[in-house]
Simulated assay, not measured.
Amino acid sequence: MTLSFVRAAGQRAEHHGNTNVEVNVKDMLELLPLIESGLHKQRADRQMKRAGWASPSSMQAMLGNKNGKRSVRLLRAKDGHHNLEIFFCDKLGEKVAESVVLVAAEEAEKQRREAANV
């Protein structure tokens, strides 16, 4: 129902030539999970490539809580313990370029801090 009210407010604003719409915070908080799930579904509908095989218990440990493991070991081939197939749907080249930029920025920040301490 919230979506209908927000859509109607947007249509009224558009009809009156307004470029902004006020949305109640409660309505926005209710709609954000729906929007996020739609984005996840949109990403999942893309053609995916297999990344490898992981252990279900290690994935559960990583995703289970805030203080869980920060990484998961991937294998190229399935075995008795690593039997959860992992896929990725992003363009690997774009992610590598993004990572290079982030690592360079982090390294520059580290050097700046070391220079300030000396």
Rank of each mutant, 00 (worst) to 15 (best):
A105G: 10
R46F: 00
N20T: 09
L92H: 15
G64M: 02
N24E: 04
G80E: 08
A61E: 14
L75A: 09
D90V: 03
H16R: 14
K110C: 06
G38A: 07
M62D: 03
H40R: 15
E109Y: 07
N83S: 11
R43K: 14
K69T: 14
F88S: 05
V101C: 02
K49H: 09
D90C: 06
E109K: 15
E94Q: 08
A54R: 03
K41P: 01
N65W: 04
L31H: 02
K91A: 11
A104N: 14
E98A: 04
E14P: 00
E14L: 14
K91P: 07
L102I: 13
G52R: 06
I35R: 13
D79S: 07
E22P: 09
E109M: 12
G10T: 00
R12Q: 11
N67T: 04
L34K: 15
K95G: 01
E30Y: 10
H15W: 00
I35E: 02
P33H: 04
L29R: 15
S57L: 11
A97C: 02
N18T: 01
G52S: 00
H81M: 04
K41D: 10
Q47F: 01
V6R: 08
P56N: 05
L63G: 09
S57R: 13
K91Q: 10
Q60H: 09
K69V: 12
Q60N: 08
G68I: 04
T2F: 02
L39S: 03
G93D: 08
E85D: 01
L63F: 07
G64V: 06
H16M: 07
L29A: 12
V103W: 08
Q42M: 09
L75T: 12
G17F: 00
K49Q: 13
L34F: 09
L74T: 05
V101F: 03
V25P: 02
V103G: 00
C89E: 00
V100W: 01
K110R: 15
M62Y: 03
E85W: 00
L29G: 04
A77S: 15
G38T: 07
L31P: 10
K91N: 12
V96Q: 11
A104I: 01
S58I: 09
G93Y: 00
H16C: 06
G10C: 08
V21S: 01
G38H: 04
N83G: 06
A44H: 10
I86F: 08
A105S: 12
I35Y: 11
E85R: 10
Q60F: 02
V103K: 13
E30M: 13
A8S: 12
R12C: 05
V103E: 07
S57D: 13
A108H: 11
R70T: 13
Q60L: 10
A97R: 10
E106A: 14
T2R: 11
K110G: 04
K49T: 11
L75H: 08
H81P: 04
P56T: 06
E36G: 06
R12I: 12
G80Y: 02
V21M: 00
A51F: 05
G17I: 03
Q11I: 05
R50W: 00
A44K: 13
A61V: 14
V21T: 02
L92D: 07
G80I: 05
H82E: 03
P56I: 05
C89R: 11
L75E: 07
L102R: 15
L29Q: 15
L3M: 02
G52M: 05
E107R: 15
N67Y: 04
I86K: 08
E36C: 09
S37P: 02
S58Y: 08
